[in-house]
Design a protein around this nucleic acid. Structure first.
Length: 252
DNA sequence: AAGAGCTCCAACCGCCGCCCG
DNA sequence: CCGGGCGGCGGTTGGAGCTCT
C-alpha cells in the first residue's frame, strides 16, 4: 500500500494563483492561523492542494516577506552562509529575515552562481576555480579558513551528509559558528556589520514590516491587529496591481 | 516588426524526517 | 518498535517577460 498522495489529483487546481485565491488563503490564515495545511484548502474554500497553499503562503503571501532583489549585504551573507551550510536553503533563509528559501535558491541559481563563476570562484566549493586543477577543495585557503574557525568537516553540496551533524544538531551552535567565522576571520566587513549590534538593529529595521493601513482591511473582513494590517495593506496593493509598490525603495 | 533565444521566478514534484498512535 | 500521516526541504520545470538579432 503506497503513500497517500498529498492531495487527490481530481479537482485540484494547479498553476498560478489568482488574486481571489490569494485573498481566501490570506483571510483564512489570518483568521485561523497556520495549522494542518491539508485541511486548509477545504476550510478556506480553495480547490488547491494543502502543500500548494503552504508554499503560496510561505513564499509569497506572508506579510513579513520582503520583496525585490536581494541587496548586496544579503547577497554576501548568502554567499558566506552557503560556504558553510551548502545548499541548505531553509537554513540560509532562516538567517535572512523576510526572505524565503525559494527566493534565495532562485537568486543563487540565477545571479550569485554566475557572479561567483565570473569572479573565478567555484559556486559549489567556494574555492578559486583555477586552483581546483592542482589542489583539492579541502586544501584551498578559502576552505581552510572556514574549517579553522567553524568545525565543519566538509561543506558545499557534497558535504551535506557529513557536515550535517556539525550544523544541524544545534541551530544556536550554527549561528554561533557563523559569528565565529566572522569574528575570528574578520575578512568580511559586510557580514561583520550585519552580525554586530548595529547589524542587529539593521536586520530588525529592515523594512519587512509593512506600513499599516488603517481603513483598508474591511474588504477582507479582518480586525485591525498589526499583522493583519500589514497583510491587508499588502493584499490591497496586489488587488490594485501594485504589488511591487515601492518595495524596492523600502529595501534600499 | 518579429521571432528566436535567454532570463527569471513561481510553482510543482518527490523524498525525507519527525511525530504520534 | 513500527508504520502512517504530515510538514518541510531541495531540485526541477514551465511559462511569462525581456533582450538580441
Amino acid at each position: 500500500m503506497g503513500r497517500q498522495p498529498c492531495c487527490d489529483k481530481l479537482g485540484v487546481k494547479k498553476g498560478p494563483w489568482t488574486a481571489e485565491e490569494d485573498k481566501k488563503l490570506v483571510n483564512f490564515i489570518l483568521t485561523h492561523g497556520q495549522c494542518c495545511w491539508r485541511a486548509v484548502p477545504k476550510l478556506a474554500g480553495l480547490r488547491r492542494c494543502g502543500k500548494s497553499c503552504r508554499l503560496r503562503w510561505t513564499n509569497y503571501l506572508r506579510p513579513d516577506l520582503k520583496r525585490g532583489l536581494l541587496n548586496e549585504a544579503e547577497e554576501q551573507l548568502v554567499i558566506d552562509l552557503h560556504a558553510s551550510l551548502g545548499n541548505r536553503w531553509s537554513k540560509i533563509a532562516a538567517r535572512l529575515p523576510g526572505r524565503t528559501d525559494n527566493e534565495i535558491k532562485n537568486h543563487w541559481n540565477t545571479h550569485i552562481k554566475k557572479k561567483l563563476i565570473k569572479m573565478g570562484i567555484d559556486p559549489i566549493t567556494h574555492a578559486p576555480l583555477q586552483k581546483q586543477v592542482t589542489t583539492t577543495p579541502q586544501e584551498t585557503p578559502c576552505e581552510a579558513n572556514i574549517q579553522q574557525s567553524v568545525n565543519i568537516p566538509e561543506h558545499g553540496v557534497s558535504g551535506n551528509e557529513n557536515g550535517s551533524s556539525a550544523t544541524e544538531n544545534s541551530s544556536s551552535n550554527e549561528a554561533q559558528s557563523l559569528i565565529e567565522v566572522n569574528a575570528n576571520g574578520d575578512d568580511d566587513p559586510l557580514v561583520n556589520y550585519i552580525l554586530s549590534d548595529t547589524g542587529d538593529t539593521f536586520l530588525q529595521d529592515w523594512s519587512w514590516n509593512f506600513p499599516a493601513v488603517e481603513d483598508n482591511y474591511s474588504d477582507l473582513g479582518l480586525s485591525s491587529t498589526s499583522s493583519e494590517d500589514s497583510s491587508a495593506w499588502f493584499m490591497d496593493c496586489k488587488d490594485f496591481g501594485v504589488e511591487d509598490f515601492e518595495l524596492g525603495y523600502c529595501i534600499n
